[in-house]
Design a protein around this nucleic acid. Structure first.
Length: 272
DNA sequence: CACACAACCTGCGAGC
DNA sequence: TGCTCGCAGGTTGTGT
């Protein structure tokens, strides 16, 4: 599910409900996620949530001196509900507040993660390997061109690489390459400076637009209020294999690139 | 360092 | 109706 827009939409929904609240209790219902959830997390009961921020696809909950990192994997959802609401199937982790509300992580495929760091330095170490935020100035034409020059892999793999830029998953990589008129299999080092500039612009535009629309709901994703996001209606190529290109009418094709299905318009995104 | 690929899971739709 | 198969939004670890 969640690429950067979905995580950001989740942060906007959940953050205000958590910030400044005191933790009553932490419940771990199924600790086996991407990595085991540490029992140590329960020691955060009684402490106050200072802030909820985001880096890449991670949500960062600051709880006094400690930090809890949440990742939604492929199928994770977060919601804030009254603690009297019955636990749902695949609810694995919960932070209960003294207000009687609870933040719940539901993740059928369990590719998500809940990590805890005792100090900021440990958190920073974990985040240090990540590339620039796509919506920040650190992600720009020069930076992307520098990366593409030293890589021969398909450009789609390149922009989905967290060291190059974070938060761009299969949906938004597919869409931004279409909007940039670049074939997804183009070797990264064959892109011109102008194409890099265009691609950077389109990635920023498509992510910002998706956030505005509440993210992309394919099936699992829901905002903190349980409602879906509406960006799926604006997808131009992702998931449209065999359908007509909305720009030129050609039939959208699909190929596998880096183990991921990649839709593209053979006419709008010609091979080099 | 760059790259390819398997692995971690459950659910769902298609086809038989 | 029910089975098997293939596929799905992500990331890490291993091997070449």
């Amino acid at each position: 599910m969640p690429e950067l827009p979905e995580v950001e939409v989740t942060r906007m929904g959940v953050g205000p409900m958590l910030q400044g609240q005191k933790i009553h209790q932490i419940n771990i219902y199924h600790k086996q996620l991407r990595w085991p959830i540490k029992d140590e997390l329960k020691s955060l009961a009684g402490l106050t949530i200072k802030s909820v921020s985001r880096r890449a696809k991670y949500l960062i909950v600051q709880i006094e001196q400690s930090y809890v990192l949440l990742h939604l994997g492929m199928s994770g959802k977060l919601c804030v509900v009254d603690k009297s609401i019955a636990k749902q199937k695949h609810d694995h982790f919960e932070i209960v507040l003294t207000t009687g509300q609870a933040l719940r992580l539901n993740d059928p495929r369990r590719f998500g993660a809940v990590l805890m760091f005792d100090e900021k330095s440990e958190l920073d170490l974990w985040l240090a390997k990540l590339g620039p935020e796509p919506l920040s100035g650190d992600f720009n034409q020069q930076q992307l061109y520098k990366w593409t020059q030293k890589r021969q892999v398909a450009i789609k793999n390149c922009i989905m690489d967290n060291k190059v830029v974070v938060g761009v998953g299969n949906i938004y990589a597919t869409e931004s390459l279409f909007k940039s008129a670049i074939h997804p299999q183009t070797p990264a080092n064959k892109l011109t400076q102008a194409q890099c500039a265009k691609l950077v612009d389109e990635i920023k535009l498509v992510l910002a637009r998706a956030i505005k629309q509440g993210g992309t709901t394919l099936k699992d994703f829901a905002k903190a209020d349980g409602k879906p996001g509406y960006f799926a209606q604006e997808l131009l190529v992702y998931g449209r294999s065999g359908e007509k290109c909305k720009s030129c009418g050609s039939i959208i094709e699909t190929m596998v690139i880096g183990q991921r299905a990649s839709a593209y318009c053979p006419s709008c995104q010609p091979r080099l």
